[in-house]
Design a protein around this nucleic acid. Structure first.
Lengths: 340, 340
DNA sequence: CTGTTAGCGCGTTCAA
DNA sequence: TTGAACGCGCTAACAG
């Protein structure tokens, strides 16, 4: 026996009133007697009524579902951003529909399509690494769906952008290496068409220039953000170029460098000082512990959600850029004495 | 200017046919001329038509949204399960609506309510640690919504249960410690009303009994799954009880133990051998590297999703229990010589 | 304060 | 093969 789902009509029939009144009572509308509202609420609870948000959204044209599109759900950074978004959106009465792109633009396009079909009120997105064109944002913009970008963002699309202070993090990190005596500092960079990696490179460059150190292109390793790339870079660049410091745009490539350097018996931090980016959990667990730039993913999620809620109340998108502060965490991979 | 959303009526008007025909054409219905179907598809694409799944679901009574309820999105294990679920459900045309309970039963109840209101076709859930009663599953069962449990499950609720082979993992892990010479083996347990921790305790017990070692209740530390608890347990149990082996139900408490033992200059693995559970990423990064039981979270997600799709096609739920194999990964925290 | 009427967008009868 | 009519559950406009 299938228990049919309870509708407002069922409640109305049960009480001898009309569905309209039930609807108003449930919605907390003022134009309904207090005692009838309470009776409706009672009967609804007793009958196990669950409002059908599909019908409600269809009729009202409003939706309380927010779409979220990320490269990968199971990456430490993104899972924490998602958690931060959820922490703000859920208490505010919104639900999250999540898609991952696996770093493929094609999947990003599909994800948008799915979210549009589901009539989400807004979309919170961090681009796939492949994404360099933005025509697929057209429909989102045309339909005036609120759009918030975070971390991997572009100015070519309107709406708030929540980003880490990548430039400052890179600047502080490189300055820290310089202060500790490094002169030939390599940079493990990412894909430079992605804003975050471009800005980290800029911060690195600026720090060197300020210190009167020439920027040597031979010391900049592109697309070096995974562990294996860090390992290879040690053999191809760090050793032959007699590098004494590494600012890595990723903790993983920093880890790769540490492992290979240890194998080669090159002392860290005595011979080479290293700092990474992201402060992954393993940074404080490896030997030596890894200096890194902490980015507050949870807070970034909170802010993205707050910006989304704000956008939902406005007519036109505000294309502001909001910076989440970063913090350099000094550990043994870059500091000689035992002061830390 | 708001571009109004395109509906099948718009397409019909544009083509001088009726919405019915458009609907049939888009649904791939046979009872429509091949060339009109193709014309409809063309016009739909040209007009940027996105089907309204809310209206579609409302009308058809079917939904392609699956709800997922987990304790925390941003935990390594759960984020990988989610990813595994997504990897199967997405290509099959389903969307995921995700809620986290933060280990609170109250939030679990709210999450269910939200999913029911959104008329999900099924729910994939792992209980909060607080969950010990199951009345809040009533409505899900009554409305015949497909239900799949994973990891933290109960037989008190119908439907497939996808679980790790916790018993076997614990058995192999404890046997491994015994084989390597341990006699007084402590167990860092979790909350014992949760199936996974109960089974890990059982496996530990069974291994001891098989080896003719008495189970000493003083060596079983309950609710010891976070780092701090592992640290305290070293001082309260490991040292005073002269323990020579620890089987921890969690990598985190194992990590805590390692840290405190190192501070106390108690040699690992010479004096105390340790194995954990979950094979968190840090297990191979700490010093000494941590022996642990690998649980394939991604595969567990795949299986949960497959079971869900299967359930959706059936009338009555099948209450089978599906085991995901685990694997003991031996590392330096438990092995003396350099053979690994 | 409550009832009546209409329609959101779609899918599914029943006719033609 | 197509069209006309209806209704999924709900909200909103208009009466009263």
């Amino acid at each position: 026996m299938v228990k049919k789902r309870v509708t407002i009509t069922d409640i109305a029939l049960e009480m001898g009133i009309t569905p309209s009144t039930v609807s108003r009572a449930l919605a907390g509308n003022q134009r309904v007697r207090v005692d009838t509202r309470e009776r409706v609420l009672n009967v609804a609870a007793k009958m196990g009524y669950q409002p059908n948000v599909l019908a409600s959204s269809l009729r009202s044209g409003r939706s309380d579902t927010i779409g979220m599109v990320v490269p990968r759900i199971n990456r430490h950074f993104f899972s924490h951003v998602i958690s931060g978004v959820e922490a703000v959106l859920n208490p505010a009465g919104y639900n999250l529909l999540i898609s991952q792109t696996h770093e493929r633009q094609e999947h990003e396009i599909k994800a948008f399509s799915t979210l549009l079909r589901n009539r989400v009120a807004g979309i919170i997105v961090s681009h796939s690494v492949e994404t360099q064109t933005f025509e697929h944002f057209r429909q989102i913009i045309d339909e005036e769906i609120s759009l918030v970008q975070f971390d991997r963002v572009t100015e070519q699309v309107p709406g708030p952008r929540i980003v880490n202070d990548n430039f400052l993090g890179a600047l502080r990190s490189t300055q820290h290496l310089i202060k500790n005596g490094c002169r030939r500092i390599a940079h493990f960079a990412g894909a430079l068409h992605v804003n975050v990696y471009e800005q980290r490179l800029d911060g690195y460059r600026y720090a060197l220039e300020q210190a009167g150190i020439d920027v040597d292109p031979a010391l900049i390793v592109e697309n070096c953000i995974v562990q294996e790339a860090g390992m290879e870079a040690v053999e191809n660049v760090i050793v032959p170029q007699q590098v004494d410091g590494i600012f890595a745009a990723s903790d993983l490539s920093a880890l790769g460098a540490i492992r290979t350097l240890k194998e080669l018996n090159i002392a860290i931090p005595e011979k080479v000082k290293i700092s990474g980016f992201a402060n992954e959990p393993f940074a404080e667990m490896i030997d030596p512990t890894l200096t890194s730039v902490e980015q507050n993913a949870f807070e970034m999620g909170n802010q993205a959600a707050r910006s989304m809620i704000e956008s939902l109340g406005k007519e036109d998108p505000v294309s502001e850029e909001i910076h989440i502060p970063v913090r350099l965490i000094q550990r043994r991979s870059s500091v000689l004495n035992n002061s830390i």
